[in-house]
Design a protein around this nucleic acid. Structure first.
Length: 816
DNA sequence: GAGTTTGAAACT
DNA sequence: CAGTTTCAAACTC
């Protein structure tokens, strides 16, 4: 232990800062001002009183009361080791619970063990040591058990629950326990907890408090509260909690063990608590919340009864939990996200569920990619992920069976990426598919390395390479969820939708598409051979996304591994043409009037950014970008013999009968497209919360949203979008470029934004860029978005058509 | 699946 | 800016 302790210290040093900050938060959250981070001094304080406590007659009395002896600290810690978790039987609903049970089981065994005598001596020794704190906590547990025989019956869950509740309460400082609850168990538990607290606090007051508890047996809660309040170190407790959270977050279980430091122990205990919180949250959260708000036995009963997790209300629970956590604030549970595999993982996942939800892209992606794996989800999944996360996952899977349906998802959350995936699963719709998704880790995001890169991106670099999935880390939540679902759904349903479009021709098209796209639904992406996927030839690159497995590209550099190269190349291209990654098609919302030229009549009410240059295809084939994008040709087009079914360059051809005649199928498609557009727009509008920065949103809209009937139909890609976030190219935020998947040439570009939300640049008819790039209709290269809109007389609608990727800096294009 | 066509992107 | 080349998707068989 000593060795570990030192190691732990080293780590501790690094993390200490964070923890401290956490502590501060905690304090604020509690409203009591930040307590000092748990330091050695506190420990000493704590230790001393404990020592006395053991000597006190009360202590002896307690010992006499229960046949059980206090357990040695060491043993306690072990039960929570990752190993234990790993071995957890799938039967157990929540990992932590089982772990707890196991630990107790062990303890009891040991209790019966004649080694009892050790206990007193050991404890004393430990009290003085750093370990003492934790030991105390454990002792308190022991005491609890001894005090409350019922607890034995109730098993671990009860304890954990209480601990959790306690934590929550403490953190929130609400402390509105309703001790009036008839349930005796409740009382004892609280009392025990309180004892723990008091012990930890190490105040002299703790002793009397304990006495009362011991004497009264199940003393009124009021007493407990008093005891707690007496303790000035209450704050410390909160701090401890936060620290514990930190541990959860940053340390693997082993690390936690390593942290044998004084506080560490307590932290460990806390960690457990957290873990229990996490795993049990679903079950217990309600009760905890209730307690926090002056609740009573109801919640407790739930715990004791160990009712299977309520599936129906689970989400609600989660929400509540989140709320609670928010209240805890300081605890920064959300930080638990980057968890390492270990015992804690089991727990954390839950927390993560709440916080880190939104990696919809991942999910999205995964959903598509993973369908393949439906058959061998478990095996492939675990095998694919080399990292601990994988293991976790497997564990989770084991756990899954215990909780039927959605619940399983809750258990998951091993690593960030996985987490997200798991989260994704949270969405009910995806039980199976998403499940599979989790298992296969190949996607960029899933890839541990990628995950890491993502992190880095998030934190430090200019997000040029942004991962939408990161949202989760940022605490984005709810807003994203629906998106995820939608996205996933979209991907999932695409095929069916298409098929549903009954026209025979259509089916044919669809079939073809499917074939091309890859039956696997996989996203067949680019097929570059010479460009290394670093040129706009590459659809993936052009779309601002990394190439993924489905791609058939050769010598591909458009991968996270070559992030630098990708970024550099991208910059280069953008330097050449700032709008290079902008959506090719700018679509206005339904209500939006038109952009300028007659072509505006186009049903799609959208325009190709730069216009096509078709000579032979008559703009009736996908060679034509306008056609491909489902928009009519405009004045900007330099096409010859335009017959674009969506609108001719000369403006004659809206979707008119003519078009119909020529392109029967096309017309029907159009209508479909139209619908899809509407849907998309709606989604976008709802999602596009400017503040939501969420990269995911754009992505989501881009990828997830309605699939164009005739567009490539390539399934959604995985999602490491390049430059998706606001970083380097501020536009990214709005910009779809990165998000625009190839298929969406048509759809992606279109984005509706509330006017007020629009960046000024975009709003102005003449954006700087426009000024720079404004091209004559015939000009070959990029024509600024504003040009398209410029003439639009009718911008009445609140929504506008925005060129998402419009660079916000005019200065870039001096030359023009 | 191979070959052709096409037009955008890239280059000069 | 225009012409040419390169490239990969779209298309055909």
């Amino acid at each position: 232990m000593g060795e570990e302790g030192e190691e732990g210290k080293e780590e501790k040093e690094g993390e200490k800062l964070e923890r401290e900050s956490e502590s501060e938060e905690c304090g604020r959250g509690g409203g009591g001002g930040g307590g000092p981070p748990m330091d050695t001094p506190d420990r000493s304080r704590i230790a001393t009183p404990l020592y006395k406590f053991e000597d006190s007659p009360v202590f002896n009395y307690i010992n006499n009361l229960s046949p059980f002896e206090t357990v040695k600290p060491i043993r306690i810690s072990q039960p929570f080791n990752s190993v234990n978790f790993a071995s957890l039987p799938s039967i157990f609903t929540s990992p932590h619970v089982s772990s707890l049970k196991g630990s107790r089981f062990l303890r009891r065994h040991q209790f019966s063990d004649p080694s009892k005598p050790e206990f007193s001596s050991d404890n004393r020794n430990k009290v003085g040591s750093n370990d003492g704190v934790i030991d105390d906590a454990q002792d308190s547990d022991e005491l609890q058990e001894s005090f409350d025989p019922g607890s034995f019956i109730g098993e671990g869950p009860v304890e954990s629950t209480y601990e959790c509740s306690k934590l929550a309460n403490v953190a929130s400082r609400t402390l509105n326990y309703d001790y009036g609850s008839p349930d005796c168990r409740t009382m004892p538990c609280h009392g025990i907890d309180t004892n723990c607290v008091s012990k930890l606090a190490g105040t002299s007051g703790s002793v009397p408090f304990v006495q009362e508890v011991s004497q009264t047996g199940f003393v009124g809660s009021g007493v407990h509260l008093d005891g707690i309040r007496n303790i000035d170190h209450y704050k410390d407790w909160a701090t401890m909690i936060s620290d514990a959270n930190d541990l959860l977050i940053f340390h693997s279980p082993d690390d936690a063990d390593a942290f044998k430091g004084t506080l560490q122990k307590p932290l460990d205990s806390e960690t457990r608590l957290c873990a229990s919180l996490g795993s049990e949250f679903t079950h217990d959260e309600v009760s905890d919340l209730q307690k926090t708000q002056a609740v009573g036995p109801v919640g407790v009963e739930q715990h004791e009864s160990e009712n299977p997790p309520p599936q129906v209300g689970e989400e609600d629970h989660l929400k509540e939990i989140e709320t609670t956590r928010d209240a805890l604030d300081g605890t920064s549970l959300n930080k638990c996200v980057p968890v390492e595999p270990g015992e804690q993982l089991d727990n954390e996942p839950i927390s993560n569920l709440h916080r880190g939800m939104r990696r919809r892209c991942l999910v999205f992606d995964m959903a598509g990619a993973r369908r393949k794996h439906l058959d061998d989800s478990s095996s492939s999944g675990s095998s694919m992920l080399p990292q601990p996360d994988v293991n976790i996952e497997s564990n989770d899977k084991q756990l899954v069976p215990t909780k039927p349906g959605n619940d399983s998802s809750h258990c998951i959350l091993p690593g960030i990426g996985l987490h997200l995936n798991a989260l994704a699963r949270t969405s009910k719709e995806y039980s199976v598919v998403s499940h599979e998704t989790l298992s296969s880790g190949r996607q960029l995001i899933n890839d541990p390395s990628s995950t890491a890169s993502i992190h880095s991106l998030n934190t430090g670099q200019d997000q040029y390479l942004a991962v939408t999935s990161m949202e989760g880390n940022m605490g984005l939540t709810e807003s994203g969820v629906p998106g995820m679902e939608d996205a996933s759904q979209a991907s999932g349903y695409i095929a069916s939708e298409e098929l549903n479009q009954s026209s025979p021709k259509k089916k044919r098209h669809v079939q073809r598409r499917l074939e091309n796209a890859g039956e696997s639904e996989g996203c067949k992406r680019c097929n570059c051979k010479k460009s290394k996927c670093l040129k706009l030839y590459c659809e993936c690159f052009a779309a601002g996304v990394y190439c993924v497995e489905p791609c058939s590209c050769q010598d591909c550099y458009n991968k996270p591994i070559h992030e630098d190269t990708v970024l550099a190349t991208r910059k280069q291209i953008e330097s050449r043409n700032p709008l290079a990654f902008a959506p090719k098609v700018i679509r206005s919302s339904d209500s939006v009037p038109e952009i300028g030229d007659e072509s505006s009549k186009t049903p799609a009410s959208a325009r190709h950014k730069r216009g096509c240059n078709c000579k032979k295809s008559g703009c009736l084939k996908k060679y034509c970008e306008c056609y491909q994008g489902g928009v009519g040709c405009s004045i900007n087009c330099r096409c010859e013999g335009c017959k674009n079914a969506f609108g001719r360059k000369d403006g004659s051809g809206t979707i008119g009968a003519e078009a119909e005649l020529e392109e029967e199928p096309e017309v029907s498609e159009k209508s479909v497209i139209h619908k899809s557009l509407h849907t998309n727009l709606i989604q976008n509008s709802s999602e596009q919360n400017p503040d939501s920065t969420l990269p995911a949103t754009p992505l989501h809209s881009g990828r997830a949203s309605v699939q164009l009937p005739f567009s490539k139909n390539k399934p959604p890609r995985s999602f490491l979008s390049i430059g998706s976030s606001s970083g380097f190219f501020g536009n990214q935020r709005f910009g779809k470029p990165s998000f625009l998947p190839p298929q969406p040439k048509f759809e992606k570009p279109i984005q509706t934004v509330q006017e007020d939300e629009m960046p000024e640049i975009l709003q102005g008819n003449c954006s700087p860029i426009g000024a720079i790039k404004s091209a004559s209709p015939n000009s070959k290269r990029v024509s600024p978005p504003h040009c398209d809109f410029g003439s639009s007389p009718g911008r009445r609608s609140s929504r506008k058509l925005i060129l998402q990727s419009i660079p916000s800096f005019p200065s870039l294009n001096p030359k023009d």
